[in-house]
Structures are given as structure tokens and as C-alpha cells.
């Protein structure tokens, strides 16, 4: 029982981190039909920025804020420089965002050095609670909490505000949204920046969770986020949450019971979904 709960919490925490990445990715894809292969690069920049800020200022909140600001700035730059010139051409988008991913990863090594950095959990989130004979690690609970809060906020913005309405309408039919007098380019930029900030936030939270940050983890988590977006259905936020939790849980349970398959299980999940239900398990409906 104790084991099951621990595996469950591990899986949920990992799932939430992946969700933060996948949320931006799925909205960007749904709205702009841009598959952003550089998303993992934004994630890793968030992680490094947070570790650096935490080491410099000693404040975890400032570290998170620093990561989010980094994400916003990088998101703005990416959208303006990389995405805008290639709207409407899928092949070019795939190629150029992958190239930018490469540059982002290498820039990490230039700015922060080629070695991996250690990341610490802030003292008030370190340690664990004991409930009966179940040990709940505080930081993991914190990540799960943040994940649900972020999901709630995004859902609120999407469902209850004007900009959310435009974004949702844009996912379904962007020509119509534009014809009705909304500046779709601005909405694109806003969504992209929001997605980038979420990715950076994910990175910032990931750093103390894994204990180390390294430049290549962008691609690893980027791939996980893609898998989640594909399984959940492109453009669907609840779908991404469900799929992220599924991927997180599958990862944590497989790592314990069938370690040989743990690296492959997500790929197999995605391959099955793509072959039998390419629109995803929870596709956004028109």
C-alpha cells in the first residue's frame, strides 16, 4: 500500500511537470498549428535560470519568478524571430524550431558552462510528512499542488475571459476569428509567450525535483511533452492533463515493476495512439 501510494505520488508529480510543458505546446499547436520543437529548450532555460537565481539570491520565489521572466523574454524573441517567418509551412516550422532547439541547448553551455548544475530544494519544502506509515515527500506534493493550480488558472482564463474565448475560438477556426475583427497575430504572440513561460516554470520546478540540471534535458522532456500532446489530442488542455498524468504514472510504475521497459513505455503508448487514434484520446471537438 505504502509502495503504491509512493509510486502514485511520484507519477503524479512527474506528470504535472510534463503537463506544464505540454500545456503550452498543445495550445500553440492547436491555435497556430505550429509544432514547436524548441519548447524543450525554453524548459531547460527556465531550469537553469531558476538554479542560478536560487544560488545568487537564496530565494525560491525569486528563482521561480526569474525563470518565468526568462520564459517570457525567450518566448517573445522566439515568436518574433523564429516562428513568424514560417507561418503556414509545416516542413519549415519543424526544421527551424529544431534548429533553434539546438541553439538554445548550446547557448546554455555557453552561459552556464558545459557541466550539470546541482539544484537544491528550499528548506521549507525539503523533508517529508509521515501519515501513518506512508511517507509523503513535501516537494512532490508541492509540485502536484502547483500543477493543479496552474491547470485551474489556465482553465479559468480559457473559459471565463475574453482572451480565452478568442484563443478557444482560434483553435477551432482561426480564419473566422480574424474575420470577426480580432488581431489573431497578437493572440498568437500572447499564447506563445504564455506557453513559453509555462515551460520555463516547469523547468524551474523540475530542477530541485531531479536534483541536477543539464543542457540535454530539454530534448528529453521536450519529447515527453510531445508524447503527451499526441496522446491527449492536439489543442486540448484537459486532454494534456490526463495524458501527462498517464505518462507520469506509466513511467513511475514501469520503472519499479518492469525497469527494462520504462524508457520505452511512453514511446509505445504514443505509437499505439498515433496508429489507432491519430487525433488523440481526448481531441478538442469542433
Amino acid at each position: 500500500m505504502e509502495l503504491l501510494i509512493n509510486l502514485l505520488i511520484n507519477g503524479l508529480a512527474t506528470g504535472m511537470l510534463i503537463f506544464l510543458l505540454a500545456a503550452g505546446l498543445t495550445l500553440i499547436f492547436g491555435l497556430m498549428s505550429v509544432l514547436n520543437f524548441a519548447h524543450g529548450g525554453l524548459f531547460v532555460w527556465g531550469a537553469f535560470a531558476a538554479v542560478w537565481m536560487y544560488a545568487t539570491t537564496g530565494s525560491f520565489i525569486l528563482a521561480i519568478l526569474g525563470a518565468v521572466v526568462t520564459g517570457v523574454i525567450l518566448g517573445f524573441v522566439t515568436e518574433k524571430l523564429i516562428i513568424t517567418p514560417v507561418y503556414g509551412n509545416h516542413v519549415q516550422q519543424i526544421l527551424i524550431t529544431l534548429g533553434f532547439m539546438l541553439v538554445l541547448t548550446e547557448m546554455i553551455k555557453v552561459v552556464f558552462g558545459p557541466n550539470q548544475l546541482a539544484a537544491k530544494v528550499p528548506p521549507y519544502l525539503a523533508g517529508s510528512w509521515e501519515v501513518g506509515d506512508v511517507i509523503l515527500i513535501k516537494y512532490r506534493m508541492f509540485i502536484i499542488l502547483i500543477g493543479f493550480v496552474v491547470f485551474g488558472i489556465i482553465q479559468f482564463i480559457l473559459k471565463r475571459t475574453k482572451i480565452g474565448l478568442i484563443v478557444r475560438a482560434g483553435v477551432l477556426n482561426k480564419e473566422m476569428v480574424q474575420a470577426l475583427g480580432n488581431n489573431i497575430k497578437q493572440v498568437f504572440l500572447f499564447t506563445f509567450i504564455a506557453g513559453a513561460a509555462l515551460a520555463a516554470l516547469g523547468g524551474a520546478l523540475m530542477a530541485p525535483y531531479s536534483g541536477v540540471v543539464y543542457a540535454e534535458m530539454g530534448l528529453e522532456f521536450g519529447i515527453l511533452a510531445f508524447i503527451v500532446v499526441v496522446i491527449g489530442g492536439m489543442g486540448s488542455l484537459p486532454g494534456s492533463l490526463m495524458a501527462a498524468i498517464l505518462v507520469g504514472l506509466a513511467g513511475s510504475f514501469m520503472a519499479y515493476y518492469v525497469p527494462a521497459l520504462s524508457l520505452a513505455v511512453n514511446m509505445i503508448l504514443m505509437a499505439l495512439v498515433l496508429i489507432f487514434r491519430p487525433q488523440g484520446l481526448f481531441a478538442a471537438k469542433g
Binding site: I94, I223, M267, A271, L274, I275, P278
Partner: peptide, 22 residues
């Protein structure tokens, strides 16, 4: 995979080559 759209194809090939690496 080739019946899928370009995005999906790119990702699925990425995943499959990941499987081979594993």
C-alpha cells in the same frame, strides 16, 4: 506512419528511433 500528417510523422519517427536507441 507515412499516412500521418507531417507533424505526426516527424514525431513518430523520433519516438521509433528512440525505441531503437533504448
Amino acid at each position: 506512419t507515412l499516412r500521418l500528417k507531417s507533424h505526426y510523422f516527424a514525431m513518430l519517427t523520433l519516438a521509433l528511433s528512440g525505441l531503437f536507441l533504448v
